[in-house]
Design a protein around this nucleic acid. Structure first.
Length: 1100
RNA sequence: GGGCGAUUAGCUCAGUCGGUUAGAGCGCGUCGCUGAUAACGACGAGGUCGGUGGUUCGAAUCCACCAUCGCCCA
């Protein structure tokens, strides 16, 4: 059947093309069909990390969509079923903040006044404000994801599924309330998430630097023999802190257990000359604290001897309920104490950052400041009944100076000043944060830390270093996951509490209905509606705790919640949907998700799939997959930076609008750039001109090749099925097929290993270098020539197969251009073929077509051609001028045989009459000899410089002869004899005398540039042909038009016209050639300085 | 402040186990080639391989320290 294709232009508007393909996909429902098509290889599970649809999408969002898209498309073509359920993240603080800004609020109290219901309603509307931009961008970049059936984290079924997860954790003792040290913002009375803390962690903050004196129990010290019995001077432990407001909360002093401490005599305050008081500090820091001459050492004591010594508190504070003050105010030893700065004695206030140390040593928790940041009225001078408390009710940072001054007055402050250090602030109002112990709900991930680590070891991380490094280390230092948030817009914590402190965790609405005793099917699970649900149980009234949960919990619960999964009680279709899609085969997000979504997915999956041990029951999803992470393969993306290398962010205003690129270069070019420019994990600088370059280099070249094929195929209408079998085609075709199948093999391998970068580069190199600039350039005459025959049929069939294969290989990367090529090149031939390339099968490589010897020989040929061109340029004889002889030397006998078989191509490429091959070690040329260092380097070692010297002085031909004869070359180096086998040397041929030559890495091409009259005539003929072709173009003729030709030439050019007239006529499609006459188009030119007039007319 | 990663030509990036003259594409200059290609080829300019030390016959590559950038954490 003769092939007819849709006409194609020499260039194309990719943007319009892509837009028409978007419509085609939509109209023909291609995405859904690609998911539903037959899937012999089973399910490939993909999870969509839900973006938030507030804010407009930037080009960095395209990057993650490009990576999310490529592997599902590839797997679909390979015969997997790849459902891609979309998702939207809707809850969380950023949303609340945006609404607060709109309402002009600055505190939580204002939200409560305004009404939580109204506030949350605004949040709900806000999160989809830009959904149309997102959907449009998603469709336009060709990211196939099911947005019609997307999960939404604020939906009731999603939230209820989150309740189920929490209940499961609760039942397994993994959800608990505890004191934890948090960064608390007293100004907004809320705990900040760690990433929020990082948002305004300032360097060079000016804070107090004070050295308070804790009066030691002298009697105790005397008992231990540390202080002389006769000593009358007071002894102080000298500590250092930057937070004087925490001093009333002090309940211990910590010393480094391995350090020596000194008892020194010094003055009452820094700078006093006297030695009237005694101090204890770390030996290593005494000089730094007191100054070189500021003290006298009295004794040196190891830390262990000071353990348990008591001292007097500086202030009274508010002790926690049940705190045992009998255990307070004593010396403890702890490794966390460093000798880098301060005094080596650390003021320990469990309530404000030292909770773990306090617990470890049994120190009571004492508070000085409330969660509102105001100093408690309890803070007082010990025993100072009725004394003034000027700091009461002050902002904690404002209390610093008053407390410091008070200690100075009382002689309990050795020194005070200021220091520059790092300190976090509330990024919203710029007020300082407090490190404070607060009651909070935790997921006790630390209990299953080993499982977290084991499951991580099974994840295939790209790049690998994230799994072992950043993520693995994070897991090793795992701390419990703080779950509760004192906020409004989020999934509510389903825990109800009674006045006596009993708790009930509720795992579903149905369960809640049982407690409440009425129908709650219309209940909104958001605040404030669930807050209003109370119930009586065992004589007490239960109220919900006021928290919502960390949004990361919600997104981490998506494997379950996207289906509304609630374990065994779920409806069958939900159970099936979950069980078929857990865990995921593949996810991809940017690197900032390491401790975000990657962690929350991983942690929840590990906890819920726990296979249990003697005490713990198996988790609720262990029957689907036990002890597993939520994902098996992950690509971690680096960030897209702007042209200056800075991160794109809304606040900097340097976000590149993806439409700038999508409307100019198109989605395929952008995607291709994202895949090929650098490995996904490296951050990359983004510039529009780089995408432009991708389009020109790759897509224009591919299009030109496609255009060439369609143009000539439509003229010739070859029967592609009638071509000879691959093995019987000409060498050039067998080579191209070998390259094509080699490419299929390597691209398949790369994509199966989640590598889009090297595979896209390999495709680019094939299309641009091998297909376009080698195969088509070298073989185009086979398409032009008249008639039909095996050779022509082979050429068409081969080029067609190459283009169709490329169309399929690029389908996951560049889905639009791929579709265009496929629909024209395949659907016009085979009506039974799938309607879209994305419904077609991934190409299979045929091993028997990959002729490695031929592939290597062509590489050698290309290399020699390159050298020949170089020699041409050096000789000054242009390529149109034929030359009589080329000398060629390659590196091995095998290469020699290979290139001999390709001699026609070599002569043609370099326009040479005859090729003479030099034996690899021929005496005809001289050689420079280099040692083959990877082979002999270790053996020769320090004698290498001597060996080099010896080789430089020796006649290369002698060594060449040894190599040819296969004998060792024996050399004495430093009195030691070395025998070098032939492989120990590398020979570079030196250009022979009398030739224009170029050599490189063992290859040599040398041209004989002596011209004969015949050769000159032939050169002239080629010049004339080129000028006639130009004239044809200038005359506006079609490629296939025939002409009558008249050539009036100077006498010097007559031999060329006479001897090569037929060649000229054939090349320029002339039916006649006359020495004089008329033509409808005329041009006068010169060849080699000789005049020439061309006249031509189109034949009828 | 800590951990991880990066730093190679004007730009974007390769560079394998330490080994031979550190490469590619784009951009620039010269020349060549051209009836598919706004393309292609050859040559040239352009590199203290972030810096300083060390190990080694030999370091872009290994080690130490430092600088800058990014991410995460504090």
């Amino acid at each position: 059947m003769p092939a007819r294709f849709k006409e194609v232009g020499p260039s194309v508007n990719f943007v319009e093309l892509e837009e028409s393909i978007v419509r085609f996909w939509r109209e023909r429902d291609v995405f859904r069909r690609s998911v539903e098509k037959e899937a012999p290889r089973g399910r490939f599970v993909f999870y969509e990390g839900p973006p938030t649809a507030n804010g407009k999408p930037g080009v960095h969002h395209v990057s993650s969509r490009a990576y999310k898209d490529i592997f599902p498309r590839f797997r679909t073509m390979q015969g997997f079923e790849v459902p891609r359920k979309g998702g939207w993240d809707t809850h969380g603080l950023p949303v609340e903040i945006a609404i607060e800004k709109r309402l002009g609020f600055e505190s939580k109290a204002q939200i409560e006044e305004y009404g939580i219901a109204k506030f949350n309603e605004l949040c709900r509307e806000y999160v989809f404000e830009n959904i149309n931009d997102w959907n449009r961008m998603t469709e336009r970049v060709g990211y196939w994801v099911d947005l019609d059936d997307a999960y939404v984290t604020f939906n009731r079924s999603y939230m209820e599924s989150c309740w189920w997860v929490m209940k499961e954790l609760w039942d397994r003792g993994l959800l608990a309330e505890d004191y934890k040290t948090t960064w608390h913002s007293p100004s907004s009375n809320t705990t900040l998430a760690s990433h929020e803390v990082a948002l305004d962690y300032r360097d060079n903050v000016k804070d107090p630097s004070v050295f308070p004196k804790f009066l030691a129990d002298s009697a105790g010290l005397k008992e231990r023999g540390i202080v002389e019995q006769s000593e009358t001077r007071p002894v102080h432990f000298l500590a250092w802190t930057t937070t004087p407001w925490t001093l009333p909360a002090n309940s211990g002093l910590a010393l480094n257990p391995d350090a020596d401490y000194v008892l020194v005599a010094a003055g009452r305050e820094h700078g006093s000359e006297d030695r009237n008081e005694l101090y204890v500090v770390a030996a290593a820091l005494a000089e730094k604290v007191f100054g070189e001459d500021g003290f006298t050492t009295v004794a040196t004591v190891p830390a262990a001897r000071l353990e348990g010594v008591r001292y007097a508190p500086l202030f009274e504070g508010r002790a926690d309920e049940g705190a045992d003050l009998g255990k307070a105010w004593r010396v403890v030893l702890d490794d966390f104490v460093t000798l880098d700065d301060g005094t080596g004695i650390v003021h320990t206030a469990p309530a404000y950052g030292d909770l773990d140390q306090g617990r470890k040593h049994g120190l009571p928790t004492i508070f000085s400041v409330g969660l509102d940041g105001l100093v408690f009225p309890d803070v007082a001078v010990p025993g100072g009944e009725g004394a003034e408390r000027p700091w009461t009710g002050l902002w904690f940072k404002d209390a610093d100076n008053l407390l410091t001054a008070n200690l100075h007055e009382r002689g309990l402050m050795f020194r005070s000043g200021t220091i520059l250090h790092s300190y976090p602030f509330n990024w919203r109002d710029g007020k300082p944060l407090m490190n404070v112990a607060k009651k909070s709900w935790y997921i006790k991930t630390t209990l299953l830390k080993d499982k977290l680590l084991e499951a991580n070891a099974d994840i295939n991380w790209h790049p690998e270093s994230i799994g072992t490094g950043r993520f693995g280390r994070w897991l090793e230092n795992n701390v419990d996951w703080a779950l509760s948030r004192e906020r409004f817009w989020g999934t509510t914590m389903p825990i109800w509490e009674s006045p006596s402190g009993k708790r009930i965790c509720v795992g579903s609405v149905a369960e809640l209905e049982e407690y409440v005793g009425r129908d709650l099917s219309d209940l909104d699970l958001h605040r404030p509606y669930v807050d209003e649900i109370t119930f009586g149980h065992e004589g007490e009234t239960y109220r919900r705790v006021p928290f919502v949960v960390d949004v990361w919990f919600e997104s981490g619960a998506m494997p379950y919640a996207q289906w509304g999964y609630q374990g065994e009680r779920s409806p069958e279709p939900v159970k099936k949907a979950f069980e078929e899609s857990f865990p995921a085969d593949y996810i991809s997000e940017a690197i900032d998700q390491t401790r975000g979504w990657f962690y929350s997915l991983h942690a929840l999956a590990t906890l819920l799939s726990d296979s249990g041990d003697g005490e713990r029951e198996p988790g609720p999803v262990a029957h689907v997959a036990a002890d597993t992470s939520a994902f098996k393969n992950v690509i971690v993306l680096g960030h897209i930076l702007d042209e200056k290398g800075e991160k794109m962010s809304k606040s900097k205003g340097n976000v590149v609008d993806p439409w700038e690129v999508l409307d100019r270069q198109g989605a395929d070019a952008l995607r291709w750039y994202i895949y090929s420019s650098s490995p996904p994990e490296t951050s990359k600088r983004f510039g529009v001109n780089l995408v432009e370059e991708t389009q020109r280099d790759f897509f224009n070249t591919l299009w030109s090749t496609y255009y060439f094929f369609v143009l000539y195929a439509n003229l010739d209408q070859p029967d592609l099925q009638a071509a000879p079998a691959a093995a019987d085609r000409p060498q050039a075709d067998r080579w191209l097929l070998a390259r094509v199948h080699d490419l299929i093999r390597s691209v398949t391998y790369s994509l199966e290993n989640y590598d889009a970068t090297s595979s896209s580069r390999a495709i680019r190199d094939f299309v641009v270098d091998d297909l376009s600039n080698w195969y088509v350039r070298r073989n185009r005459r086979r398409f032009w020539k008249g008639g039909q025959g095996d050779d022509k049929a082979s050429a068409y069939a081969t080029l067609h197969e190459a283009l169709v294969t490329v169309a399929k290989l690029i389908a996951p990367y560049a889905p639009f251009v791929s579709e265009e090529l496929y629909s024209n090149l395949v659907l016009n031939l085979d009506e039974g073929a799938p309607e879209s390339v994305h419904l077609a099968a991934w190409p299979e490589y045929r091993e028997e077509l990959i002729d490695d010897g031929l592939l290597h020989s062509v590489k050698v040929l290309q290399r020699v051609v390159e050298l020949g061109r170089s020699a041409r340029a050096e000789s000054g004889v242009k390529t149109r001028q034929p030359l009589p002889e080329l000398l060629v030397r390659v590196r091995s006998d095998a290469e020699l045989a290979g290139i001999k078989a390709l001699e026609d191509e070599l002569r043609d490429e370099l326009n040479i009459k005859k090729v003479t091959y030099l034996d690899v070690t021929a005496d005809f040329v001289d050689y420079t000899v280099r040692p083959n260092l990877p082979l002999v380097g270790k053996r020769v070692g320090r004698h290498i410089p001597e060996l080099r010297k010896w080789l430089a002085q020796t006649d290369g031909r002698d060594i060449a002869r040894n190599i040819r004869e296969g004998t060792d070359t024996v050399i004495t180096l430093g009195g030691e004899e070395f025998a070098f086998e032939p492989e120990a040397f590398l020979l570079d041929a030196v250009s022979p005398e009398g030739y224009s030559a170029a050599e490189n890495a063992g290859y040599l091409a040398a041209l004989d540039t002596r011209l004969t009259p015949e050769l000159i005539s032939e050169g002239h003929a080629r010049d004339i042909i080129r000028l006639i072709q130009n004239a044809r173009k200038n005359a506006g003729l079609e490629v296939s038009d025939r002409i009558r030709l008249v050539l009036e030439v100077a006498p010097e050019l007559e031999p060329a016209v006479r001897d090569f007239g037929d060649v000229i006529k054939g090349e320029v499609l002339a039916t006649s050639l006359e020495a004089s006459g008329e033509g409808s188009f005329e041009e006068s030119q010169e060849v080699d300085g000789h005049a020439l007039t061309i006249r031509l007319s189109k034949t009828a």
